Simulated scan of single mutants.
Amino acid sequence: MALGFSPRDQRSRRLVAVIECALNQNARDAGAASYPALNKAILTLCMRYDVGIVQIPCPEMRFMGLARERPPGKSIREVLDTPAGCQCCLAISLELVATLRDYQNNNCRLLAILGGNPQSPGCAVHVQCETADPGRLAAPSGVLMRILQEELRKQGIDVPFKGMRDCNRDLLQRDLRWLEALFKNA
Rank of each mutant, 00 (worst) to 15 (best):
I19H: 08
G85H: 03
L23K: 05
R77E: 03
N168T: 05
L152Q: 12
R28I: 01
G135F: 08
N185S: 15
E78Y: 03
G142Y: 04
I56F: 01
R174H: 13
L66M: 07
A67K: 14
N26S: 15
Q104H: 09
M47T: 13
A17G: 06
L152S: 10
R62D: 15
A139W: 07
L15N: 02
V54Q: 08
R77W: 04
Q104T: 11
T131N: 10
G4D: 06
M61I: 15
E95H: 12
G73K: 07
D50A: 13
Q10V: 08
T82Y: 04
L15P: 01
G73N: 04
G115V: 09
L43K: 06
L172A: 12
P71H: 04
A138I: 04
A132W: 03
F161I: 11
R28H: 01
Y35P: 11
I19F: 03
R177Y: 02
V159I: 15
A186D: 05
R70Q: 09
C58I: 07
R68W: 03
I42M: 04
R68I: 07
I19L: 09
E130R: 10
A91T: 14
E151A: 12
T82V: 02
L148H: 02
I42N: 02
G116R: 12
R177L: 09
L110M: 14
D102W: 13
A181I: 03
C123R: 08
D81H: 08
G52E: 12
R11T: 08
S34I: 00
T44R: 11
